[in-house]
Amino acid sequence: MLDRAPSHTLEAADTAFVRLNDVSKRFVGRISSVERALARLGFDYRDQVVRAVTDVSLAIEKGKVLGLVGESGCGKSTLGRIAAGLLTPSAGSVSMGGERIDRMGTRCDTRTLLKAQMVFQDPMASLNPRQKVVDIITEAPLAHGLIRGADRLAFAAERLEEVGLAADALYRLPHQFSGGQRQRIGIARALSVSPDFLVCDEPVAALDVSIQAQIINLLMSLQERRQLTILFISHDLGVVKHLCDRIAVMYLGEIVEQADAAALFASPSHPYTQALLNEMPSVKAGRRLYQPVEGEIPSPLDPPPGCHFHPRCRAAMARCSSEAPPFFALPDGRRARCWLAEPAPSPGA
């Protein structure tokens, strides 16, 4: 695997290709009319609001890879879907190459929307079991007039070759392939519309360890060849270490630290990142719910007050349980949402 030289990117950089500005997503589970009536009578019923993503700003420069890590349920997939233009945020905006992609449907140009594609976690569920590989790969480019019907087979064979599959896979159905091969088909499908931006949502989490490296290598070489901008989601810091230029750490719907990959691994500033890194070597790849850090993950239905991490934080101070820390900018384009990162007050003040 290739190691990348760190790049210095600031979230505010205007050169960024993909930008998420103050994106939030709430899922509201509405109560029934009966419960609403009971609530009027004083019973405790209210709409359940899951704050899956809160005020997230991210920027990815063209041709760079941003890693998004965090525990199960912290909102990574939700954020990834929003970034790929699959889910409309409750607030905030998403743009790619200067054009908004945050509304599904007619308000955005289809050609633009196609430039953001997603690779999914479950390679079986993400392929239509009744569609042959050739149709999986050519359906979208044909429907959008990107290729001609006559070129269909050649196009599909080319895409298969690009992801390391032989052309005799064309007429087979997804269930006839192994997990790794299916994920390659999923990648070929995403590439079929020549995207500039790829959101990879834990693309190797469901695969055997021996296959994981193959898929990651494939993604890396595709990224290089096609100059793809990638948002790579993972709960496993080990996976993102070699792949990403920059890393964002997510906790309970918020980004808590952002830094260049090398800097983050060398000296993590947020206690949560530190905890993740400390646990890293002992982590065995598995399909269980990933929870490396001690303590229970709080519910996004009812996040703790102050710093969301304070119930589990070893460095927690008194103010942490009441005051939520803002993002503090640190040297080298690093940012952390923790009181420990607060710059010391200047003596003159």
Binding site: R81, A116, M118, A125, E139
Partner: peptide
């Protein structure tokens, strides 16, 4: 299931997603 989401991401029409997927 994610293949429906994938089809939506590929911006296929609703009728096509209904009938073909």
């Amino acid at each position: 299931r994610e293949y429906i989401e994938a089809a939506q991401g590929l911006r296929l029409g609703h009728v096509r997603i209904l009938m073909r997927h």
